[in-house]
């Protein structure tokens, strides 16, 4: 047993060091966001909230934020809706070329984003279409869809098939069975799919960089400002806000995921209706 505990404590120290490595860059964010020095370097100067104030009055940033939110909300809803179709098809039905079709739909997960962005750009330019946030939404929907499908497939496949049959057997229509039984039970999956897609889209840089035309999004705005040293403290403040936001969103997602598990296995009564 002593060998095991020795091994355990060695690994534990490693794990803590690893977490430090993971969190080191993020830990620096608030440090520089509240540092009054204009250069991002040690030693620190004084405490200030100026950068946050500067951030809140920046109109380009506000515009970028608006664009990013529009894109992320649209892309996450579209990806999740398409994901529901795909997840249901793949968990419930056998059909010809199933493997090939699902493979194609899941490809963006393993395709470098630069290729998605470039090939879409070539087609859009070739077709003479105007680049706008709409084209970014199209690209983001495409790359979010596989993640949505992965999450939703888990939700759909953990459902007992006979639940829907039971509802149908008890006189409901197919749609009624779906709405009254399946939908409430996969709702936690739908919510996590929306959250994950939203987060992916909000953070996506390459597609937005090439397909947005002149419209800024949060990541492309950040990228453009990183070239100007005097803008960087404000970007640190923005990063701090984004980190806090991400953690809040993740926590909400985690809550719904656990509630979904509780609902199926029965640790929490929750209760729709």
């Amino acid at each position: 047993m002593s060998q095991r505990s020795f091994e355990g404590s060695g690994l534990r120290i490693y794990a803590i060091l690893y977490l430090l490595f993971l969190y080191a860059p993020i830990a620096l964010l608030p440090v520089f966001a509240f540092n009054s020095g204009t250069i991002i370097a040690f030693p620190l100067q004084g405490f200030t909230t100026d950068w946050f104030a500067q951030m809140s009055t920046n109109s380009t940033l506000r515009r970028a934020l608006g664009n990013s939110l529009t894109i992320a909300v649209s892309a996450s809803i579209l990806a999740t809706c398409l994901g529901i179709f795909a997840a249901r098809a793949t968990t419930r039905f056998e059909f010809p070329f199933k493997g090939g079709i699902m493979g194609l739909i899941m490809v963006p997960m393993v395709l470098p984003e630069i290729i998605v962005a470039m090939s879409l750009l070539v087609v859009l330019l070739g077709a003479g279409l105007q680049l706008s946030i709409l084209t970014v939404i199209a690209g983001h929907t495409l790359i979010c869809m596989p993640y949505a499908i992965a999450i939703l497939s888990t939700a759909f496949s953990s459902l007992d098939k006979s639940l829907e049959e039971a509802a149908y057997d008890l006189g409901e229509t197919r749609w009624g069975a779906f709405r009254l039984v399946t939908l409430p039970l996969v709702m936690p999956g739908i919510i996590s799919s929306l959250l994950i897609s939203f987060t992916i889209s909000l953070d996506e840089f390459i597609i937005a960089f090439f397909l947005a035309g002149n419209e800024p999004t949060l990541p492309t705005y950040i990228f453009s400002q990183l070239r100007f040293p005097k803008q960087i403290p404000m970007i640190m403040a923005l990063g701090t806000v984004l980190v806090v936001l991400s953690i809040v969103l993740l926590a909400i997602g985690e809550y719904f995921r656990r509630r979904g598990i509780a609902r199926i296995s029965g640790k929490d009564s929750g209760g729709f209706q």
């Binding site: 840089f205 990541p219 950040i222 990183l226 990063g239």
Partner: peptide, 18 residues
């Protein structure tokens, strides 16, 4: 997973800072 969900660009940039 938390650090992974924070802005990729900013995380990369912070390594430049480090």
């Amino acid at each position: 997973t938390i650090p992974f969900w924070t802005s990729y660009l900013i995380r990369v940039f912070l390594w430049k800072v480090i």
